[in-house]
């Protein structure tokens, strides 16, 4: 598989598009074959997985590997597994019993297109299949190393999804909504929700790539710091898009967060924008030890804060 342009001169958009194309091409091939009797679930999985997303998380994984000059084919299955995990969380997040969103990535949400029951099965199916991919992955490594890496990656991804991750964040989000949102500790609660719902998978995306690239402990820590700050910047930008964007550009309903605590409601649009910028700046600072090798990761961070969808 051809890797996207590694030349530093290549524009970021080109580079992002190249990786998105690589991932989009790889995803269908990693899905299980369609069984007629369970076709609707398979269709729902394909519908959501191949919907036009930004692929930020798998791109982050691939970008870290690229920095270490790791062969893309060794990392791509893991990156795709992360995208599957993320997609499954989106399906669940949009359900009527959760956020009750009708639009996702510019299209009808999964439950709108396939019904709630099928959507739940599709989400679980994607999650399940992600682990199946991880269990069979790690090409090019010796047996012992492969087993160790499989264990590390599975453990980190499980943590990112579980109660310490996406599920914990979603539960806190629901609880906050049930209470009516605002409370005296808005920021702490908000950070908890964001860091678990969004940040944990960002961190896992960078972390597993670092493990597979044999990063040193200090480098691993630097990449996790980068991803942590980037994840929150990403979420604040989402808040800003919800507060100031339009549905057509965003590809999802806007003003959906009205009345809920967000960074925009906490410190205003300008304050949120400033914070997002500072978080991106900190993420970039975290990469100081990598020098010019990390230029793409820096560009990715800047892109995250400047996006409008």
């Amino acid at each position: 598989m051809p890797a996207p342009s590694r030349t530093e001169a290549a524009p970021l958009e080109t580079w992002l598009t190249s990786w998105r194309d690589v991932i989009d091409r790889a995803l269908p091939g990693l899905l299980p074959p369609r069984e007629e009797l369970a076709g609707s679930v398979h269709d729902a999985m394909v519908y959501m997985l191949l919907s036009p997303g930004k692929r930020i998380r798998p791109t982050l994984t691939m970008a870290v590997g690229e920095m270490y000059r790791l062969e893309p084919r060794r990392l791509l299955p893991t990156a795709c597994a992360i995208e599957m995990v993320h997609t499954s969380s989106l399906i669940l997040d949009d359900l009527p019993c959760m956020d009750d969103a009708r639009l996702r990535r510019g299209r009808a949400a999964c439950h709108e297109a396939y019904g709630e029951a099928t959507s739940i099965l599709a989400a679980v199916g994607l999650l399940n299949h992600a682990y199946a991919i991880l269990a069979g992955g790690m090409r090019g490594a010796a047996d012992a190393t492969r087993d160790r890496l499989r264990a590390i990656v599975a453990r980190r991804l499980a943590a990112a999804i579980g109660l310490d991750g996406v599920i914990g964040g979603q539960a806190a989000d629901l609880e906050a909504a049930r209470r009516g949102g605002a409370s005296g500790s808005d920021l702490v609660a908000l950070e908890f929700i964001h860091s678990h719902k969004t940040g944990s998978l960002f961190i896992a995306s960078a972390e597993v790539a670092a493990h597979l690239s044999a990063a040193t402990p200090a480098e691993l820590q630097a990449l996790m710091d980068y991803a942590k700050n980037l994840g929150l910047a990403f979420q604040i930008t989402d808040d800003l898009i919800d507060a100031t964007g339009d549905a057509k550009t965003a590809g999802k309903p806007v003003r959906a967060d009205a009345g809920r605590p967000t960074f925009v409601s906490l410190c205003g649009v300008e304050g949120a924008r400033t914070l997002a910028g500072e978080l991106v700046g900190t993420a970039i600072e975290s990469l100081a030890a990598f020098g010019r090798r990390a230029e793409r990761l820096r560009e990715l961070a800047r892109f995250v804060a400047s996006r409008d969808r």
Partner: peptide, 18 residues
């Protein structure tokens, strides 16, 4: 600027907490 019912917290306080 979206309408919201929350009182804005000072940016410095948020930075400190973050």
């Amino acid at each position: 600027e979206p309408p919201d019912s929350h009182k804005h917290v000072g940016l410095d306080a948020i930075r400190t907490q973050l």
